[in-house]
């Protein structure tokens, strides 16, 4: 049963977006964020967030009214974790904010998806782009595992893959705190079957994970927000890799730790399925 937007949800979304308009302005920004369209889109996403994936958000007390670089693990073949984290930060965390997810280069050339993602706040994951957004006071959502995170085979589920270094360099340069986030439950939404690397290469795609289904399974999802991490200030603006690698390893370890704790605390898949069938929507 597909969740439907209730009157209460609609009112809640409208209230949040009225707040956001005051903060961001009516007009589209230079990256194409369009609050009116983002509001319309979240009316489809929020019922899924709340009643289908039954997202639980932990650690919202760690988020202050300031700019962050939100850094999360990436999972689930077709990554919906960005959507859910973005929804959590706009709907559940006060004051509401639009996180600007960094997306892969190939993503920006896709018809419809590019338009829709830009309207919702997504931007090209390019360093100049990120620095310009940070200068404008925006909060970023970064998945430093990149494609390695989403294209994992089953044996690597919930194992954080090696982070790239760019995000940390930008955090140092901008002097912005890193907010670690762990998503638990998204690996099972599109069960992994095979990674078609050859075909992906032929078509210029970053990855082509084949799944048993392309309709998302209602895996219960938990989002954990950790305590903010201040970037190291005792190193130069442009440090050597050897200087920042241990610091990045610490963030990786922190997120892995949050995932491991989350796995101990996670809800079972089948009871949630039954609950979905029984109640339709609403916890």
């Amino acid at each position: 049963m597909l969740p439907i937007l209730t009157k209460e949800d609609k009112k809640e979304i409208d209230n949040v977006f009225n707040e956001l308009v005051v903060r961001y302005g009516e007009r589209e920004d230079a990256w194409g964020l369009n609050l009116r369209k983002a509001c319309n889109n979240i009316k489809y996403i929020y019922p899924l967030y709340k009643n289908y994936f039954k997202v639980r958000l932990f650690g919202k007390e760690n988020v202050q009214d300031k700019q962050y670089m939100v850094v999360s693990n990436h999972s689930g073949q077709i990554a919906i974790d960005g959507l859910l984290i973005g929804t959590a930060f706009s709907m559940e965390i006060k004051p509401s904010r639009i996180l600007r997810p960094m997306v892969e280069r190939f993503f920006t050339s896709l018809p419809f998806i590019n338009k829709w993602a830009n309207e919702c706040g997504a931007v090209l994951g390019d360093r100049d782009n990120c620095m310009n957004l940070l200068e404008k006071g925006e909060s970023l959502l970064i998945f430093p595992e990149g494609v390695r995170g989403v294209a994992k085979s089953t044996k690597d589920f919930y194992k954080v893959q090696e982070f790239t270094r760019g995000f940390y360099r930008m955090a140092i340069k901008a002097g912005i705190e890193i907010l670690p986030v762990a998503v638990v439950g998204a690996e099972e939404v599109f069960p992994y079957v095979y990674q078609a690397k050859g075909i992906a290469k032929k078509f210029g795609l970053p990855a082509l994970p084949l799944s048993a289904n392309y309709f998302p399974l209602p895996s219960p999802i938990d989002i954990y927000v950790g305590k903010p991490i201040k970037p190291e200030t005792a190193i130069s603006d442009d440090p050597a890799d050897s200087e920042i690698d241990p610091l990045i390893d610490q963030i990786e370890a922190e997120i892995q730790h949050m995932i491991d704790d989350g796995l101990d605390n996670r809800r079972e898949f089948w009871p949630i399925m039954k609950e979905n069938k029984g109640h339709g929507h609403g916890e």
């Binding site: 050339s109 590019n114 090209l124 100049d128 310009n132």
Partner: peptide, 9 residues
């Protein structure tokens, strides 16, 4: 181009 950053210098 699809990978243009915003605010090209």
């Amino acid at each position: 181009l699809s990978d243009n950053p915003v605010f090209i210098k």
